[in-house]
Amino acid sequence: MAHSTRPMTDWRKAKLPVFAFLAPATIIYTVFMIYPLLDSIRLSFYTSVSGGDLTFVGLDNYRTILGDPGWSATFWNAFWNNMKFFAVHMLVQNPIGIALAAVLSLPQLKLRNTYRTLIFMPTMLSVVVVGFIWQLILSPVWGVGPEILDIFGLKSLFGPWLGKEGSALITLALISVWQWVGIPMMLIYAALLAIPEDLVDAAVVDGASHFEVFLHIKLPLVLPTIAMVSILTFVSNFNAFDLIYSVKGALAGPNFSTDIMGTLFYRTFFGYQLQLGSPTLGATVASLMFIIILVGVLFYLFVVQRRLSRYQL
């Protein structure tokens, strides 16, 4: 975010234009983004009595969600599921993204752009479509899954992964990885391209093999990008909803084993089965999500980013 060059023209020379240029964006952004965020936090301190009137209840909603045995079990279940969901992304998506980026940035690679375009393709599809694609492929009814595994002689490993409590969440996370791996790949690839060729040549002359060049020169130089990709992953994972909802519905079955913060928020807000929806409790869940994301972002800004200096290349 280096604003190396400062603004140059004194605004007083052009008062009206400055205001006119800024106002539309600032107003829409404030009304439809900042105000709702703040208002949601405000709502989390209220409860709605019948008729829609709001009563201030302090931290009661938070006590309910974190303290009430039923609610707290649900909340922590969603939270830990979400952490697992994030962990799978960190452990699978980012390493694969880095590896693909490293391979794609090898010198003299033919068909580089073709590979890049094709591998990025799933990222363009809607999460809903991706969810259904894999639901069909993994469906024991259809039998494509076992048939593909059979090619590698692994047919016996096949199971109804999406349907089993133990494997549903991991499977969904892997589906998400399959879709989104293009993003870390692209961002890291771009960072790798920004490394001057001279630096790589110097390392080669110094006696480094391709792998050593990657390990000692390229990887340290793209660490800030990897950190940025990680925080983007964190935010989007704790904000995820579409995939679980389209494959598993709002109930995030089986037996809430795929419930994450996004689906919990939706159910709390709109209700499900016999449970009535509650905007104020929904706002409370949203505020808790906000806190989680904020902690992550602050950790990134003040701990990770400070330690990783971005080198002038």
Binding site: P196, L199, A202, V204, V205, A208, Y311, L313
Partner: peptide, 28 residues
């Protein structure tokens, strides 16, 4: 290159930005 017994000084110097002067020189 490593088996040729050569060393090269680049126009852009190509110093490894994340290493100290000592490590730059010691890398090879």
């Amino acid at each position: 290159p490593r088996d040729r017994g050569i060393a090269m000084v680049f126009q852009s110097y190509a110093l490894y930005p994340h290493m100290s002067v000592y490590k730059n020189m010691a890398f090879g």
